[in-house]
Write a protein that binds this DNA or RNA. Sequence first.
DNA 1: ATAACATTTACATTAGCATTGACATTTATC
DNA 2: GATAAATGTCAATGCTAATGTAAATGTTAT
Lengths: 211, 211
Amino acid sequence: MRLKLTQNQQKVLDYLKQKINKNGVCPSLRTAASELAISHAAVAQTLKALEDKEYIRREGRYSRTVHILDDVGDVYITQRQKQIPVIGHITAGLPMYAQQEWEGHLLVDAKIYPGQNLFALKIQGNSMKNAGILDQDLAICEPRQYAHNKEIVVALIHHEEATVKRFFLHSNCIELRPENPDFHSQKYEFEEVLIQGKVIGIVRGPHGIDD
Amino acid sequence: MRLKLTQNQQKVLDYLKQKINKNGVCPSLRTAASELAISHAAVAQTLKALEDKEYIRREGRYSRTVHILDDVGDVYITQRQKQIPVIGHITAGLPMYAQQEWEGHLLVDAKIYPGQNLFALKIQGNSMKNAGILDQDLAICEPRQYAHNKEIVVALIHHEEATVKRFFLHSNCIELRPENPDFHSQKYEFEEVLIQGKVIGIVRGPHGIDD
DNA sequence: ATAACATTTACATTAGCATTGACATTTATC
DNA sequence: GATAAATGTCAATGCTAATGTAAATGTTAT
């Protein structure tokens, strides 16, 4: 949702559009300033405001190119917003939608994450590092009580410990395999493991991007 | 559990929600006052009551921003959505912000990705695998023309080839280091490399989660 | 009585817009 | 290439209108 423009900002934007349409390029600050009868720095300030409000975009620091951004319209965007709970701790025996300990909500793009009753889980540790899942990442999960081989799942072990691992079903046991040579595969009896969901995506924020 | 609202408080809250949904920002006290047919100080008092009951949150003393809170104390999703363009290819001539080059928009949570004028870039290849960035991931980036050592950046090489690598500045060259033993560091003269932004996050969809 | 709600008024703060001038960077010109 | 001109940036500053705050006070409903 773009913020509304003030009268002055609209005036400058209209002027820019007209100029760019006519000449193909943006006029210099001082040219614009003179034609708008204000100072060059005033134009620069308004341009900054227009950029902050996402009506234009500029390139590098001293670049002279300005792109006018069309309204992308948020009619469809409202249908794409999806709010999913971030689960703090998984409590045994409760289905996902009944989990109590929320750490809050996460907003995701429904176009990328289709499905219902999705939930998010904050990853603890680096056991899935080689699958591109790092400590503190948010794993987007779809609730499921079963899993196929090689899928990355959220599993509850001994009804208390939640973990994200790659799933393998063997004839007599379930193997939960980490993706990090520092960790080892664990094998469990069928009744020791409860599948809670399948990981369908990852959201990583600014934390820990640069070690 | 939050205290119940009075009829009047509920009315004002509904009004605020509607206004914020429509305009993206909270109306001024006097605007609201006029539309609710009361005085501006009355609105201020009700806002104070709403804040005490944790239905809204306001920033500084004289700040004009109001956040609507949900029952968990999170900011409402309508105030957290942020659309960012997905850049298809960064190529010669820097048409990076030319809208026709965009592959669409991505909806992200503003709480996780603060900052303005963000853009997303689809990762090609696995050269950053050990940094938890895989092929086809969407890298969330903040525009920047400079970088600090060890940061993961989007760089344009020889004005045509865009790449995501870890950045190192040496006395006589710039090193762009991949995070994958199958690839090698590349060193460039200063004028060969143009920094376009810093990677501040990753969004990975269902594709490629299970190799 | 008390809390919620309302008003009026004076005051403090902020946003938007403008200016100027020094400076860094790019572009043009020779 | 070197130099000059043009251009974008930044910081400091001032002004005005719009805006939020606070205090004193009155009204209404429970």
